[in-house]
Design a protein around this nucleic acid. Structure first.
Lengths: 200, 200
DNA sequence: GATTAAGTCAACTCATTGGTTGATAAACGA
DNA sequence: TCGTTTATCAACCAATGAGTTGACTTAATC
């Protein structure tokens, strides 16, 4: 027993660790909210998944709603990061298809339906629209399409495995929530966009 | 007081009318479920909207869940009808965009996210995929696209004003839940499909 | 080491909500 | 016309679930 425990608290092995607890709760909440939506999620389930007492939800986030908002706003920032990088269109879409599989993505879908708070960073959207406009000028994309509506259509299409999960399953006979499916689907979208630009 | 009330019961003016009550409940329920999703919907709200005592939900449908299922299955049939008509692709999409505005449409979106029951008539989907394949053979659509995934992408895109309501609002600055928006958006999709087929 | 502060938990409270009960009235058949 | 069935409602009930309380325990500070 000569080892000094405090030398490297290293979070994971400490008995008490507020940061870790917070993180556990946030992670568990994202999973639960993402799977069932806000209304159907039970705080008890969140706590159980996090392996922690449910009172701590109140302690750290002031309750169910506070916890939800914490998560809802956290992706604002992650989306903002994404906004900065300027990639080819099919890359952007592929990335988008990927987020489909994450808890964040599911949460975003719920929020959209429920009409919660504006769930995406405005700057990100504006940026994407601008880039689409540029591509139009460059002749990559037909000029008679409205860039805003086109972005909307492409985002919606990319989110299909998520928003139309059931229907996707019915059509393809596969489980749309797998990385393999996402990859295949992203390829198809890339192909589609390429056809759009005329240079198949 | 000589008039014989019973001569023409005419539903709407009768004091008691099971059929009418049932219909009122179904309509109200579709609206409520569509707006908030199953979990967030209160039976009290349904009854209030229908202008009827809440106990009648149990009386006629055996409870909240029974009422929900009643509605969830009812669109199966309406979708099946839609399946029979063979229209040009942009017409199909336009029709789809339209349903976006209905309670049925919203309900369908919720069901897809929640992973409820398979929410669309299988025959309808198969039919649409087959038609897409035909169009491919006819050269209307690039042959290297998978018809199933293409259908998925197009349906998802068409449902954008619904599934990405918030985001749509952010992008366009308009309310996507209006007939005007739906019309404009449907036009864009038609245009997009036309570009896809190469004959801009 | 004693004191204080922070973190965690089990048990409890209280509002909400779906569902039930029993009374009441309209429709209907004999 | 009278009894029976059907439809409707107001009031009640039981269960659930979010949030609170107070005790207890670990860590930090003096």
């Amino acid at each position: 027993m000569a080892v000094d425990q405090r030398r490297s608290p290293s979070a994971s092995e400490r008995k008490r660790d507020p940061e870790r607890t917070r993180a556990l709760l946030i992670e568990a909440a994202a999973a639960e909210f993402g799977a069932k939506g806000y209304a159907a999620t039970r705080t008890t389930d969140i706590a159980a998944r996090a392996g922690v007492n449910k009172q701590l939800i109140s302690y750290y986030f002031g309750g169910k709603e506070g916890l939800y908002k914490e998560i809802a706003t956290s992706w604002h920032t992650s989306a903002a990061e994404m906004a900065s990088t300027e990639q080819p269109l099919d890359q952007v879409l592929a990335g988008f298809v990927q987020t489909t599989l994450t808890d964040q993505g599911r949460l975003w879908a719920w929020a959209n339906l429920a009409g919660d708070s504006p769930p995406v960073d405005e700057a990100f959207l504006r940026n994407q629209v601008d880039q689409l406009r540029d591509r139009q000028r460059a002749g990559e994309i037909p000029s008679d399409l409205d860039p805003g509506l086109l972005l909307l259509a492409l985002m919606a299409a990319a989110a299909a495995p998520l928003t139309l999960r059931q229907t996707a399953g019915q059509i393809t006979g596969e489980d749309p929530a797998t990385p393999e499916f996402a990859a295949k689907y992203a390829d198809q979208l890339a192909l589609l966009v390429r056809h759009l630009s005329g240079r198949a």
